[in-house]
């Protein structure tokens, strides 16, 4: 056990209402437990997530951000999830220059019927963020 063992990560999950949010819902109604570290924010599409939303979350002290949308090619809004993914890709490049580990943002694509996959994804991400330790961003607004 390391000194970070007492650390419970705070994670914000932006979930697409058509797929990953539905998977989270399925997880809930199927009584499949997943770590309580995540706070879910439902969005219409991952293409709706702005840089301001992600950066403000980090500014407010979030340790990790999970972005759950459709798998490529399955977006309800043509290629909006791919656009959203490109935005996150570019933002991660900038975050690296700020010294923030880009692993603190993870994108997943989970279909609405895959409650089990959602459960595992949250467990894995929470464990990974726990291993990374608390967010180094301490300069809160």
């Amino acid at each position: 056990m390391n000194e970070k063992s007492g650390f419970e990560p705070k994670i914000v999950a932006f979930l697409c209402k058509w797929t990953t949010y539905a998977a989270a819902d399925l997880c809930g109604v199927s009584r499949m437990p997943y770590p309580p570290n995540i706070s879910i924010i439902r969005v219409n599409c991952t293409g709706e997530i702005t840089a301001d939303m992600i950066l403000s979350a980090f500014e407010d002290g979030v340790d990790g951000i999970l972005i759950g949308g459709c798998r490529p090619g399955h977006c309800r809004y043509e290629d909006s999830n791919l656009k959203g993914s490109n935005r996150v890709y570019l933002l991660k490049r900038a975050l690296k220059e700020f010294g923030l580990n880009p692993e603190r943002i993870r994108e997943v694509g989970i279909a609405g019927a895959q409650g089990l996959i959602f459960q595992r994804a949250v467990e894995k991400f929470t464990a990974d963020i726990r291993a990374l330790g608390p967010s180094p961003v301490t300069d809160h607004a």
């Binding site: 950066l55 961003v137 300069d139």
Partner: peptide, 12 residues
């Protein structure tokens, strides 16, 4: 004046 304001040290 950005959200992160300055370079942070994130271990890696």
């Amino acid at each position: 004046a950005s959200a992160l304001k300055r370079r942070v040290n994130d271990g890696s």
